[in-house]
Design a protein around this nucleic acid. Sequence first.
DNA 1: ACATATACCTGACTTAAGTCAGATATTTTA
DNA 2: TAAAATATCTGACTTAAGTCAGGTATATGT
Lengths: 291, 291
Amino acid sequence: MSTDAIRRIRRFNRAVTAEVGALDTSFLGRGRPLGAARVLNAIGHGRGEVGSLRDYLGLDSGLMSRLLRSLEEEGLIVTLPHPDDARRRVAALTEAGRQEFAAYEALSNDRAAELLARFPKGDDLLRAMDLVATALGRERIAIEESDPRSEQALHCLTAYYAELGRRLATGFDVSLSRDPEAADMMRPRGTFLIARSDGLPIGCVGLKGKGGETAEIKRLWVCPSARGLGLARRLMEAAEAAARDLGIAILRLDSNSALTEALQLYRRTGWVEIDRFNDDPYPDHFFEKRL
Amino acid sequence: MSTDAIRRIRRFNRAVTAEVGALDTSFLGRGRPLGAARVLNAIGHGRGEVGSLRDYLGLDSGLMSRLLRSLEEEGLIVTLPHPDDARRRVAALTEAGRQEFAAYEALSNDRAAELLARFPKGDDLLRAMDLVATALGRERIAIEESDPRSEQALHCLTAYYAELGRRLATGFDVSLSRDPEAADMMRPRGTFLIARSDGLPIGCVGLKGKGGETAEIKRLWVCPSARGLGLARRLMEAAEAAARDLGIAILRLDSNSALTEALQLYRRTGWVEIDRFNDDPYPDHFFEKRL
DNA sequence: ACATATACCTGACTTAAGTCAGATATTTTA
DNA sequence: TAAAATATCTGACTTAAGTCAGGTATATGT
């Protein structure tokens, strides 16, 4: 029972170790020890400060320093004192460093493409990988404000509309619903929050304000591979915090009885059901929460 | 599109590297370098021959030899010449070695249990992990003969019956079907094959003979996480090979129109539809293949 | 029976990785 | 402004890992 689960997890670990090891290997093969390659790649991925590099890679400060020196001698990076605190130092790629980093990226992409090409059922595999990656990286899910017209926001909204279309008995047509103006979901009137796991957008929520003390929660969505991790609740909490920050006292939202998990969440987190407050054709449940 | 897939695979790799690294760490912490610990564990998992250890762990022969010596000096293993070829050597755990191996196993199990405990949606996660592990370990799927009454065989059969119950419009009750006698699915009359990925049973097929030149294929099943990898075809090929080996000339099988993938497989691999040859209530399609 | 191949071992080496005790420069605190 | 704290660096180490050229014992082919 539970030993079966443990066996399955260990099997997963074994299966994945071989693949991951191979990906690690792609960091070799450019004539540079693994440690130096990892530092170069971390810098390429935007981690400039030496302290943050040390934390991320889990290296001793002496070792870190030496690795930076060796990359500097190769002409791949330069280090400068931090503008706010001259004790700290910040590393940045030189032009040669950018090229070398791009070469590593290309290697990693090739390895990933190769792996994908080996599998006939690529879609199922990718979905399963997303689920595992999101679950394992749960502590690292970040919720941040974003422009509701950004690419990632549109990705979320498209998925949200598609899901409504599947789940509502009537289907869903955005043009019939009240599509909020982008400006109403941006500061200072409102905001739009995206949850990302390792950069991949996996959930969103909009706060649509009109400048008054009342605002609406819109577009709460969590991608299927991230459900069951309490993310919807975290998104709602973040939206409420943003609303307080914007001086909003009363929040409202509308929903549909087909969205059972959402209704359950609202009822459990202090929302009270109120009368219909708009003539949108899709919602049949209306809620309010005083902050 | 495809770059999205690559991004997702790389994200999976990043997420998993951290976990796998932590599991690796559990191999430290018993006062022994990683290399020696890995050798000890490989021996504990039944890999006794020095050559096979070397292949499995990818180590140089000199290094391998030294690691074996260090384990020997610790009193954890003994090495003996191979009975068939005195140039080769075989390593085996001593009593102390068995205890030390058990301690490593306990550590690994604890790590896995810990990981599992961290996740509310354990079941979905496990299913996704199974799928990923099976896909990644596809080359390592082994098909072997087994007693049809073994624990792993029962695991497969139970899952098979459950799936029939779900998929047949009428449901499925084993007791109404012709449950084959175990002896008919064992040599010399027939056989029972189990497909395992890294030890986990993921598919099966039975060959039920009566001692004559005709036999029946029964109980073809592939677990959901392993579908789409061509495993059913491999199982059927293995069953046919076993049938030839047993001197069987004519194979038959029955199936149900709800099992569309199976019917498709039979039609594509040289089976021809024939008249009903039994009075089992569930099947509505009957096939034959001459070897 | 001999040469050749195979399987493993030993010794001498290189390299990467990691540790630790100061040294240096800068910032913060009293 | 002096003392303490912080961030990084340098030099001197240790250990693990890996490589390579022989060496020994056993097996195989002619």
